[in-house]
Every structure is written in structure tokens, then in C-alpha cells.
Design a protein around this nucleic acid. Structure first.
Length: 284
DNA sequence: CACCACCCCTGGACGC
DNA sequence: TGCGTCCAGGGGTGGT
């Protein structure tokens, strides 16, 4: 059980960074572990000498978007760094005078114009950074493989994604090409909220059921965002704060405990290689 | 294309 | 107390 930053956690990091690092200029980048960075390694790739113009999010991925630099035409493009937190990654802002302590797992540190720092830390290194020469390049390559964001996907689009697969519903919802942002925690919570079995074939889900899925997905994710996400062990937001939604999990991590709806003991199985907890009575 | 097994990696839990 | 073993898990890759 690590941290598993899913959409609500990543959204909180995004909101935090938007309030702290956006508008500041990167004066220096310290790459302590080069292999966490993929993509072009040009000087501007990690936003050196660029202002951080905004933070974008799609599903569980973030992008630090740099301002157009220089005066030459070739430089008049916004470079960006896509950040994936993986299992144990964090992206934290450390204000002036509060530099992060030297740490084996802090791989990248951006020094900002006012002396503040942005640090990417990831003990397990399932996460990483991908650099792009432009936001378009990110959208045309890496992000083009992702489905619609879980907060904005329409029932029709979700239904289209589910209906073309015979995989288990749980596996399909975890597939970021079907819908971007859900992970093991929120898929289990969502399926319980909808009364749907994780083992149902994706293609058996009707448009009406997709409407329920989308409605409950938005409610679930927005509530989790409001509570700061779920912290199981590692997750903290850009300011180092833990989340509170883990206290409201109904099935995740509650194997063997009573179903909050019917009192039946919750079951734990493996679906798509992931631990899956559900109520055999309420979810069909 | 759809699907799956495999791999990456570390630290916490557990048994002795 | 310390050590070995098991396990979690997102997603990239390569094989069927």
C-alpha cells in the first residue's frame, strides 16, 4: 500500500502548484537522477530560464508549461514537462529559505527566481518526467493515447470505450485509454457506488449504466478532491499536506469488513492483476 | 487491434 | 533486534 496518486490527488497537486510556482521563473535545474527524465535533453527542456506559465492536467498526469522564451522564431514555442507521479511520486513546492533536505529519492529540483524550489521526489521511481518542445508535441504524442479525463468524459464516450472490450469492467476502467484518471482506489469505490460487479464484461455495460457511472464518478472524484485526496502512506500535495478521503473509503482496503450498505462481509479478489474489494451482494 | 504476462522499484508487514 | 521473504501497484513494452 503506497500512495497511488489518482485524479483527485493529482488535481490537488495541480491546484497547489498553480498557487505557488506559476508565474515564477526557473533559474536553475538540478538533475540528481538523469534516468527519471525521458525526452529531448536540450537546455530549455526542463524549463531553465523559462517562466512557469501554467500547470495542465490530464488524468493522472501533469504538465508544467513554460513561457515562450527568447526572441528568435525557433524559440517562440512553449516547452513543457509532463510529470507522472506513478506510485510514490511527489511534486512539492518549498518556499524561500525552506530548501528540501538532501534526500536519496529527490531526483529533480527546480530553483525558482525568488529562491523557492520545486522538487520531484519518487522513491520507487514508477513515475518520471517527459520533456516536450511544445505543448502541441505533448498533446500529439503522449496525451493523445489517453482517453477523456474522468471529470469531463460523457456517458456516450465512456459507453463507446467500454462497449468495444470484453475485458472485466474493472480492467477497462483502469485502462487510461478508456478514461483517464482512475486507479485502483477510485475504481473500486466507483463500482461499489454504482452497484456494478468488477467482473462484468465491459461490453455488457449499457448506455444507462454508463450514465450512472459518469454521474457517480464526478460526485466521487469531486468529493475526494475537496477532502484533499486519499493518503495511504506517501501522498502529500504540493505543500506537503496529506489528504482526508481515505477515511471515507467504503470498499478499498476494507476486505473482510462489513459492507456499509448490507452488512455482508466484503470480498477480495484479483482482477487485471489488481487487488479488488467489492460486495458480492450489492454489486451485480 | 485486443489482450496479457512481465518487468520496473522500494519499503512496509510479517514470520522466525 | 535483525534478517529474509512476500507483496503492492501504474503503465511501458513486447509477445501472442
Amino acid at each position: 500500500m503506497a500512495s497511488m496518486p489518482e485524479l483527485p490527488e493529482v488535481e490537488n497537486v495541480c491546484l497547489g502548484l498553480t498557487k505557488t510556482v506559476v508565474g515564477r521563473t526557473v533559474t536553475r535545474v538540478s538533475v540528481r537522477r538523469a534516468d527519471v527524465v525521458r525526452g529531448p535533453r536540450k537546455p530549455a527542456s526542463l524549463l531553465r530560464d523559462r517562466a512557469i506559465q501554467r500547470i495542465d492536467r490530464l488524468g493522472k498526469q501533469l504538465a508544467l508549461v513554460g513561457g515562450a522564451g527568447g526572441t528568435g522564431l525557433a524559440e517562440n514555442v512553449q516547452p513543457c514537462v509532463c510529470v507522472h507521479l506513478g506510485m510514490t511520486g511527489s511534486l512539492r513546492f518549498h518556499p524561500t529559505g525552506q530548501a528540501p533536505k538532501p534526500d536519496l529519492h529527490t531526483h529533480i529540483i527546480w530553483l525558482l527566481s525568488d529562491g523557492g524550489r520545486l522538487a520531484f521526489r519518487d522513491p520507487r521511481r514508477f513515475g518520471g518526467l517527459w520533456t516536450f518542445d511544445s505543448v502541441d508535441a505533448l498533446h500529439d504524442t503522449r496525451w493523445s493515447k489517453l482517453g477523456d479525463d474522468a471529470l469531463t468524459i460523457t456517458p456516450r464516450r465512456l459507453h463507446a470505450g467500454l462497449s468495444r472490450t470484453r475485458r472485466a469492467l474493472k480492467a477497462a476502467l483502469l485502462d487510461q485509454a478508456v478514461v483517464a484518471g482512475l486507479g485502483n482506489i477510485y475504481v473500486d469505490e466507483l463500482l461499489f457506488a454504482c452497484g456494478l460487479s468488477p467482473l462484468r464484461p465491459g461490453s455488457s455495460v449499457s448506455l444507462e449504466e454508463s450514465q450512472v457511472l459518469v454521474r457517480r464518478m464526478r460526485v466521487l472524484l469531486k468529493r475526494a478532491i475537496r477532502l484533499g485526496g486519499s493518503t495511504l502512506r506517501d501522498y502529500v500535495d504540493a505543500s506537503g499536506r496529506s489528504g482526508g478521503f481515505q477515511l471515507q473509503h467504503t470498499v478499498y482496503g476494507r476486505s473482510g469488513l462489513m459492507c456499509t450498505a448490507c452488512g455482508q462481509e466484503l470480498e477480495s479478489i484479483t482482477v487485471a492483476g489488481r487487488t479488488t474489494v467489492y460486495c458480492g451482494v450489492c454489486q451485480t
